[in-house]
């Protein structure tokens, strides 16, 4: 067993379903919606109850995580929840545990 090797393979897009809760203030809400809608990787869905639905598209998992973090920082966004991840190619990214890295 080789516990040291590492694998990263070609990837497909990562597509996530996301819920955001926006601020109560109408101006802040509108500003947030505009910012989110303008982002090329985000598809704005509809308002349901307290939530807005988003589809978030990224070229890989790392970019997806960054995008998730960015959404949380958009002024007027109070709360972000990820509810689904479609990761057809991401399974190929999974690697072994980085078992015995040596501290330099």
């Amino acid at each position: 067993m080789n516990r040291r090797e590492s694998h990263v393979s070609p990837r497909d897009p990562v597509v996530g379903g996301v819920l955001v809760r926006l601020a109560d203030d109408p101006a802040h809400r509108q500003a947030a919606l505009t910012t989110l809608a303008e982002h090329p990787a985000i598809t704005l869905g509809e308002a349901i109850g307290d939530w807005w639905t988003l589809a978030v598209e990224a070229e890989n998992a790392s970019e997806g995580r960054d995008l998730h973090s960015w959404i949380a920082t958009v002024p007027g966004v109070d709360w972000v929840e990820v509810v689904s991840v479609h990761f057809e190619g991401m399974a190929e990214e999974a690697g072994p545990s980085p078992a015995v890295e040596v501290m330099a």
């Binding site: 597509v15 996530g16 379903g17 996301v18 598809t43 869905g45 988003l54 598209e57 689904s84 479609h86």
Partner: peptide
């Protein structure tokens, strides 16, 4: 997939 994500 985007539509499926929105539906979820």
């Amino acid at each position: 997939l985007k539509h499926a994500a929105l539906a979820s």
